[in-house]
Computed example of a mutant assay.
Amino acid sequence: MEALLISTGIVALAEIGDKTQLLSLFLAARFKRPLPIIFGIFFATLVNHALAGAVGAWLSARLGPDVMRWILGVSFVAMAVWMLIPDKLDEDDAKRAAPRFGIFGATLIAFFLAEMGDKTQFATVALAARFDSLAAVVVGTTLGMMIANVPAVLLGDAAAKRLPVRLVHAVAALIFACLGIAALWGTVPAVLTGQ
Rank of each mutant, 00 (worst) to 15 (best):
N48Y: 10
N48I: 08
L51V: 15
L51Y: 14
A52T: 07
A54L: 15
G56I: 04
L59P: 11
L59C: 13
L59H: 09
R62K: 14
L63V: 10
L63I: 11
G64L: 13
G64D: 15
P65W: 09
P65Q: 04
M68V: 06
R69I: 00
W70A: 11
I71P: 09
G73M: 12
G73D: 11
G73R: 12
V74K: 10
F76Q: 13
V77A: 13
V77G: 10
W82H: 13
W82K: 11
M83I: 00
P86F: 14
L89R: 09
E91K: 09
D92A: 12
R96T: 13
A97N: 01
A97W: 02
P99V: 15
R100D: 05
G102H: 11
I103T: 11
I103C: 04
I103S: 04
G105L: 09
A106N: 09
T107P: 02
L108A: 02
I109D: 00
A114S: 15
M116P: 02
M116F: 15
K119H: 12
T120W: 11
Q121D: 05
V125Q: 08
V125A: 04
F131I: 01
V139C: 01
V139F: 12
G140V: 04
T142L: 06
G144V: 13
M145P: 04
N149Y: 06
A152Q: 01
A152N: 00
V153T: 00
V153F: 07
L154V: 01
L155Y: 11
L155S: 05
D157E: 11
D157A: 13
A158K: 08
A159N: 00
R162W: 02
P164F: 09
P164Q: 05
L167E: 01
L167F: 06
L167K: 09
H169A: 13
A172V: 00
A172G: 00
I175T: 05
L179Y: 07
G180T: 04
A182Q: 10
A183H: 11
